[in-house]
Design a protein around this nucleic acid. Sequence first.
DNA 1: CTGTTAGCGCCTTCAC
DNA 2: GTGAAGGCGCTAACAG
Lengths: 330, 330
Amino acid sequence: MSQRMTIKDISRMAGVNPSTVSRALRDHPDISDEVKESIKRIAKAFDYTPNKMASNLRSSSNPTIALIIPEINMFFFPSVINGVTDAAAKAGYHVMVLQSNEQQEREHENIQICIDNRVSGIVISLSRETEQLTHIERAISFGIPVVFFDKAPSNAAFDIIKIDDEKAAYNAVASLKEAGCRKIAGLFGHPGMSITMQRRIGYLRAVKDFGLEDAGIAHGFQMNDAYNAALGFAEKGIDGIFAMSDEVISGIVPALKSFGLAIPDDCRVVGISDGKLPFFFTDPIYFLHHDGCRAGELSVERLTMRMAQPGSPIKTHVHILDTPLMSNKR
Amino acid sequence: MSQRMTIKDISRMAGVNPSTVSRALRDHPDISDEVKESIKRIAKAFDYTPNKMASNLRSSSNPTIALIIPEINMFFFPSVINGVTDAAAKAGYHVMVLQSNEQQEREHENIQICIDNRVSGIVISLSRETEQLTHIERAISFGIPVVFFDKAPSNAAFDIIKIDDEKAAYNAVASLKEAGCRKIAGLFGHPGMSITMQRRIGYLRAVKDFGLEDAGIAHGFQMNDAYNAALGFAEKGIDGIFAMSDEVISGIVPALKSFGLAIPDDCRVVGISDGKLPFFFTDPIYFLHHDGCRAGELSVERLTMRMAQPGSPIKTHVHILDTPLMSNKR
DNA sequence: CTGTTAGCGCCTTCAC
DNA sequence: GTGAAGGCGCTAACAG
């Protein structure tokens, strides 16, 4: 049965008007129980399924939330997808996942796709390349609410769910200091990302405030870069290291161990993490927890709030997520 | 500008008929260049965006592929999402991600969502609970092609992209034998999954074929279960261990190390892996590579093939992915 | 209670 | 080359 039933088909069979069928199927109180039942029986018999494309057009609304991410990897974004799809499903929305592959142009295209499809809302983490926010503003001007997470504009003129990057890095270094570290290094992701900059600022400020010896900082967004950089720092005799992300942690730990350093006795490791990776290691690792699932849930929550008030007179809100210091102790 | 431009609006401004506008915007050859340009200018000036909901209804086609997964975690599924969204984007489709949370009922609901929305195709990995495939058959009978990956029906009456689970497990054990292991154990995921069963069969057959001493098998789908089980096996003095998935590997490695075993000298580890996790460890780990990204790409490829032939007279095809033996050597 | 009418926005005949 | 008309499938407003 490739050709599907329509309300019209059913109306013909039931000998009633299409609108009666529509009402009956949606349990409209006006329709008599007999007619309702007879219509429902026919619908069931022929496995009728209302065409959402039609009803969406009719109501000019598409119960879809778009999730735009730079590029999915094993850390953080899977959790976000989890949080977003769950929260969206609960609120009656579907989720369309779009990847920008860290390219501004793809991000623009993806926003256009959202506009074309009249999605109800957009949850987005910006690509590395993104500088202008005209595409975002365009979506908003079209009445599509947008919530940022993780890689968000510094501008508070938007709805944002993020951590205090600078403070998190600062606190991470503080924990190294408290643990007695003297000479530390910082490993960061791609220098082009806003969060890299902010976390670096926090790191450097803390190093200065606490009078720690700085073995230097390094950038590199792949595990291997971090691995090599960590080896380099290990040679310099560090006793503490800050990792701005899981990717970086995943390079650091093997590097330190290959070098023969005991963690945390010879060198303490603290990072900002989604909270999964550290548990793969036996040596004590410390991390400030950036919960992707929660970020996703809150993003959807804020979105639904906006969607309830289409005029969007509500003022924008920047939600700062907690980043509790944790460890991988079993 | 909450209320959006329509073709009708533009037609009024341009003093032409809506159909002329439609044609002009789609570069129909019949329309004169002057009219075209004037219309396009207006469209641009007012930031006109064709309403996809309308054109989709008109063409009764929704360029969306639904990806239904049991539950997203850090392994495998992120790669699959990556492969699926990339391949889909290239083919001009969007991706809707639906989670069944390992519940049959949710899976049914998700299939219904697909039918309601007239998606172009479905890529699905079955939930643990799923037994009947009536919901799948229903989708197919509605003309929606379905491709399975990973957790697929044993029945070859469907399009499937998977590995040879039994053989992969068998080969994994073979590699232990070749490396000189004598007494081994097998750690598996949830016993309710089809792939668990098949991999277990392969494991047991290999143990027998190679005359290895079997320290036993254990099930447990969380890292901690695997951790504890591995500890138990370590006490029994194994020199080799098979892990059916990344989740299991992630528990085994820390356990063996905590126990003081050297990997691979005291105990060799071989698993079936997406190929990311092993690189977090410094000790040599071996794995049969199950490439999620490739699985996702191939699923979409097969789907597009089917979508090109709506009648679907093509016979179903089970694609067996290679699972090359690899290691985490740098 | 049910039928009639009309339209969501687009596009494809069919005319002229 | 352009206009007029109709319909994709559904539903809401208005009758009666």
